[in-house]
Amino acid sequence: MRGKVLGLLAALTIAASATAAAASDDPRIAIDLPPDVRETFLEHMRTHMTSLDEVLQLVGAGRVREAGTLARKEMAIGQGLGIGRHMPPEFREMGFAFHRAADDFARVTATVADPPDAAGWKALVAGLAGITTQCAGCHGAFRVK
């Protein structure tokens, strides 16, 4: 029994060390937020992810106008909670770029044929890529402490 306990403690110590090393090796800019702002911010990011997933599902179902309406309602400019004032300027700009990309996508959904032709699908996918590029860029550059 003692050997199992020591083995478990050793495994936990190694895991904790690996986690600490990974955090210290993380080249992303760490953003330190007050606890209440941190929770609100993380929930808002999860909402963006859920909204993006719903937009993708709508596009996949051929319901592109609804996808645009949802993107505009949930992800476009004007949906912020004022959290940006706690962020570095570079983060704020990336956030604005995300919101602009969602708005751009919504505009595309209003202009493509219904149902979309090949050019319409190409424009829709490019619009979605504009959104996800912003997501990947931000998550690659920043992390929350």
Results as ranks from 00 to 15, higher is better:
Arg72Pro: 00
Thr109Ile: 07
Glu66Ile: 01
His99Met: 15
Leu58Cys: 05
His99Leu: 05
Arg63Trp: 01
Ala129Asn: 14
His99Thr: 08
Arg85Gln: 15
Leu52Met: 12
Ala67Tyr: 00
Gly120Ile: 04
Met87Asp: 04
Ile83Glu: 12
Leu56Thr: 10
Leu56Ile: 11
Gly62Cys: 07
Ala61Arg: 09
Gly78Tyr: 07
Phe96His: 11
Phe105Ile: 06
Ser51Gln: 05
Ser51Val: 00
Thr47Asn: 13
Ser51Cys: 05
Val125Pro: 03
Glu74Phe: 00
Ala113His: 07
Asp117Glu: 12
Ala102Gln: 03
Met87Gln: 07
Arg65Gly: 08
Leu58His: 02
Thr109Asp: 09
Val125Ala: 06
Ala136Lys: 10
Cys135Asn: 10
Glu93Ile: 08
Ile131Val: 13
Lys122Leu: 11
Val108His: 01
Phe98Ile: 03
Ala71Gln: 02
Ala113Val: 06
Ala67Pro: 06
Ala119Val: 10
Val55Gln: 01
Ala97Ser: 10
Pro115Asp: 09
Ala71Cys: 09
His99Glu: 14
Ala106Val: 04
Gly60Glu: 09
His48Arg: 09
Leu52Ile: 08
Phe96Lys: 14
Ser51Asp: 11
Phe91Cys: 12
Arg92Leu: 04
Phe91Trp: 06
Ala101Glu: 06
Met45His: 09
Thr132Tyr: 04
Pro89Ala: 13
Val55Ser: 04
Met75Gln: 07
His86Arg: 10
Arg92Gln: 14
His99Phe: 03
Gly120Trp: 01
His48Thr: 09
Gln134Arg: 15
Ala110Asn: 13
Gly60Cys: 12
Gly62Trp: 00
Ala129Leu: 13
Arg85Asp: 10
Leu70Val: 02
Asp104His: 09
Trp121Arg: 08
Arg107Asn: 12
Ser51Asn: 14
Gly127Met: 04
Thr69Asn: 13
Lys73Pro: 00
Gly95Ser: 11
Gly68Arg: 01
Ala106Phe: 00
Val59Ile: 15
Gln57Pro: 04
Thr47Arg: 11
Gly120Cys: 09
Leu70Gln: 02
Arg65Ile: 07
Ile83Gly: 10
Gly84Phe: 00
Met87Ala: 08
Ala71Lys: 01
Arg65Ala: 15
Ala106Thr: 06
Ala67Glu: 05
Ala102His: 02
Lys122Trp: 03
Ala76Ile: 03
Ala71Tyr: 00
Glu93Arg: 15
Thr47Val: 12
Leu128Ile: 14
Arg100Cys: 07
Leu128Trp: 00
Lys122Pro: 06
Met75Cys: 08
Arg72Met: 12
Gln79Ala: 08
Arg63His: 10
Met87His: 04
Gly130Ala: 07
Asp103Lys: 05
Gly62Ser: 06
Leu52Lys: 02
Ala67Gln: 04
Leu58Pro: 01
Arg63Pro: 03
Thr50Gly: 09
Lys122Ser: 15
Leu124Met: 08
Ala71Glu: 03
His86Tyr: 15
Leu81Arg: 15
Pro88Tyr: 05
Glu90Leu: 12
Phe96Arg: 13
Asp103Ile: 00
Gly68Met: 03
Arg63Asp: 14
Glu74Pro: 02
Val59Ala: 05
Gly68Asn: 05
Glu74Ala: 15
Arg100Gly: 04
Pro88Leu: 08
Leu58Asp: 04
Ala136Gln: 13
Arg100Tyr: 07
Ala118Gln: 13
Val108Ile: 15
Leu124Pro: 06
Ala119Pro: 08
Glu93Phe: 02
